[in-house]
């Protein structure tokens, strides 16, 4: 996997986690992230779209256009995305445990 920053990784996992509950439009993903994290995370200034398009290009999401005159795009998770979410969440949990272990002086095995 290409090396990406922690914040990018978290953003990706936020998107994957929301879509794990079902297909959604871009705005629904952004709203859902904000609401379900109590405002701790939010996507502003269109930062959501590069993430969605990257995940789609990597095969973790798929999108479909609906409508004729006014088109709308819906994203849904693929099997690869679901696997990525599980692996990513586990990896992130380990990293944060290690981080807080260091901060709080607790030894993590």
């Amino acid at each position: 996997m290409q090396q990406i920053t922690l914040s990018k990784r978290i953003n990706e996992l936020l998107v994957l986690a929301v879509l794990d509950h079902g297909p959604a439009h871009g705005y629904q993903i952004a709203l859902s992230v904000e609401e379900r994290t109590g405002g701790a995370f939010s996507f502003q200034h269109g930062t959501l779209y590069p993430i969605l398009h990257r995940l789609e290009a990597e095969g973790r999401l798929q999108s479909e256009w609906h409508g004729e005159r006014r088109r709308r795009k819906t994203y849904h998770l693929t099997a690869a995305g679901r696997a990525e979410l599980a692996a990513g969440a586990e990896e992130l949990e380990r990293q944060f445990q290690a981080l807080f272990g260091l901060i709080r002086g607790t030894h993590v095995a």
């Binding site: 705005y27 996507f43 590069p50």
Partner: peptide, 9 residues
């Protein structure tokens, strides 16, 4: 504000 991409996006 939420949806329109800025220069970085």
């Amino acid at each position: 504000r939420q949806a329109v991409p800025d220069d970085r996006a």
